[in-house]
């Protein structure tokens, strides 16, 4: 029964569990933040373009890796619709948060809160059934780290980013988010791989 339950969990959450898919996005975000943090006159557009191309190549490579090593699962239409809806809503929320962040002088980071909410959403969505609690705690930790970073101005630490050499708190939030994405993508892959039994000899 437990293996049947695990089989359903894997089939439903198959593409969400493929942690390495987040690595190219995290890498691109990290490089973009570091690039944006350099003075305008020193920015290397070629480097940014090359990293974007590398991220795209990595994304394609990761996709092919999962397809050849773990197989292909196509979700039910309703599930796909819900995933698209969640992605669109997330994108809209991110856009609104970004506009709010650059327009108003707020004592918290709306962009950070959107990323924190996304981490919490993933925690509830993915880690309910699978084995190995370490990833569950990592997702919760991700949420707490991004939330804490978003609320720094509220506790009088809004200047922390500037003291770390970052030009704005938005860059600071995105830096934290990109590092969290890189770490969770690697551990997410470990979690995913450990859901599958070892093969019969």
């Amino acid at each position: 029964m437990q293996s049947a339950q695990r089989a359903q969990f894997l089939a439903v959450n198959y593409s969400r569990l493929q942690g390495l898919k987040g690595f190219p996005i995290g890498l691109l975000l990290l490089v973009t933040v570091l690039w944006a943090n350099t003075p305008t006159i020193d920015r290397n557009w070629v480097l940014l373009f090359m990293v974007a191309v590398l991220s795209l190549a990595l994304h394609i490579g990761v996709d092919r890796y999962y397809a050849s090593r773990y197989g292909i699962v196509e979700g039910k239409p309703r599930q796909k619709q819900m995933d698209y809806a969640a992605a669109v809503l997330g994108g809209l929320a991110g856009l609104v948060a970004f506009l709010a962040e650059i327009t108003y002088d707020l004592s918290f980071s709306p962009v950070g809160l959107v990323f924190a909410a996304a981490a919490l959403f993933e925690y509830f969505r993915i880690v309910q059934v699978g084995k190995h609690a370490f990833y569950r705690w990592l997702m919760l930790l991700s949420f707490l780290v991004i939330l804490a970073a978003s609320l720094l101005p509220l506790v009088g630490l809004g200047h922390l980013w500037q003291s770390l050499g970052l030009r704005s708190s938005l860059l600071g939030i995105l830096l934290v988010t990109s590092l969290v994405m890189l770490v969770t993508s690697l551990f997410g892959h470990l979690y995913f791989a450990r859901q599958f039994p070892s093969e019969e000899s």
Partner: peptide
């Protein structure tokens, strides 16, 4: 077979490689 049917009931379609990884069978 129960694992196979449980997995297939939760998705539209799955390939042989996934079912093999899922069940650990040869």
């Amino acid at each position: 077979r129960l694992s196979i049917l449980a997995a297939l009931s939760a998705c539209k379609v799955a390939d042989f490689t996934f079912l093999q990884r899922l069940t650990g069978l040869t």
